Simulated scan of single mutants.
Amino acid sequence: MEILWFGILAVLLAGYFALEGFDIGVGLLLPFTGERDRAVGAIAPFVLANEVWLVGLAGVLFGAFPVLEGEVLSELYPVVVGLLVSWVVRDAGLWFRRRLDGSGWRSFWTAAVAAGSLGLALSWGGVIAGITGAPALLGVVYGVVVAVVFAFHGWTFLAWRLPGEAVAQGASRTGRGLALSAAVAVAPVVAPLAVLAPDVLGEAAPSATLSVLSLMVLPVVPLMVGAQIWVWRVFRRGAVPTFF
């Protein structure tokens, strides 16, 4: 049972990096593109669906690996707070940047999207490095690595989502290219997780608790997967929303 829930944890974490990674990456690239409304509109339909993976990850940590969750919150509290603040700032920028007209208003919230995206990438690098026991300086370096791979993923996503635009010149415009960039985005979290697997398994909740969680959670998984497939089928091509 512990192996099953470790697998669920790994899939949720990898799924978050693969999907939310391009959202964060596009946010990082906003200061460097002149087609910011088109770029934000390209990720708009996917943001909330991709964040569900993080919510699910937090739930699995709380229910199946409470000791690990406690260690992350206590030992990496500043980094976790930075991650949450960055999440709020990035999402606030996405929601508010088109609520009023005016270049100053839009520029401010566009900067908030970029700053929040950078904070998310750096914070995730710090969390991953901190879990492995690396010193704080290496956590900053790893955060930069995460930011770079997310930016690459976002660049590839824009080329795939907006094939007729000049938003991401030189990037692969195929689904295969996007899948490759997703694999690159996942690598910074999959490699440490594989190394830490024995330690994570040792901190799982009792088998009885995991069995009850399985009865409660596993029936919901097909709904989550189905919703993700629906979002991608509906919004993978076509007009870019202008609400954001």
Rank of each mutant, 00 (worst) to 15 (best):
W53E: 02
S107N: 12
P66H: 08
V127K: 15
L73W: 15
A147T: 13
L54W: 10
L122Q: 02
L137F: 15
G34E: 12
W95A: 06
V55D: 04
A115H: 12
L29W: 15
E51R: 07
A147S: 14
A58E: 06
L94I: 13
S103Q: 07
R36A: 06
T132W: 10
W95K: 07
V148H: 09
L137P: 11
A121G: 04
L162W: 11
G63C: 03
W105S: 08
R106Y: 01
A49E: 04
G119M: 08
W87P: 01
G34Q: 13
A112R: 09
V141T: 14
A121Y: 01
F150V: 07
G82A: 13
L48A: 10
S86V: 06
S123N: 11
W95I: 06
L100F: 12
V40A: 04
H153A: 08
L30I: 15
E75W: 02
V85R: 07
L76V: 09
R98Y: 05
L76C: 08
L57C: 00
A114D: 00
F152K: 15
E165K: 14
I43Q: 04
G70M: 14
S117N: 00
W53N: 03
L29M: 15
F65S: 11
I43K: 05
S123I: 09
V52I: 07
L138T: 03
D91A: 02
I131W: 13
W160P: 09
A42S: 06
V149I: 15
V149M: 14
W160R: 13
A112L: 11
S74V: 05
L162E: 07
W155Q: 01
L158F: 14
P31L: 15
V80Q: 12
A58P: 00
V146L: 07
L29V: 15
V81T: 01
V144T: 07
L137K: 14
T110E: 04
L158T: 13
R161E: 09
R90Y: 02
E69D: 07
L48V: 10
L48T: 13
G41I: 10
V55T: 01
G119L: 09
P78A: 09
L30N: 15
A129D: 03
L84T: 10
T132K: 11
A115M: 14
R97H: 11
V88T: 11
F46V: 03
P163F: 12
V72A: 01
I128H: 12
E69F: 04
A44L: 09
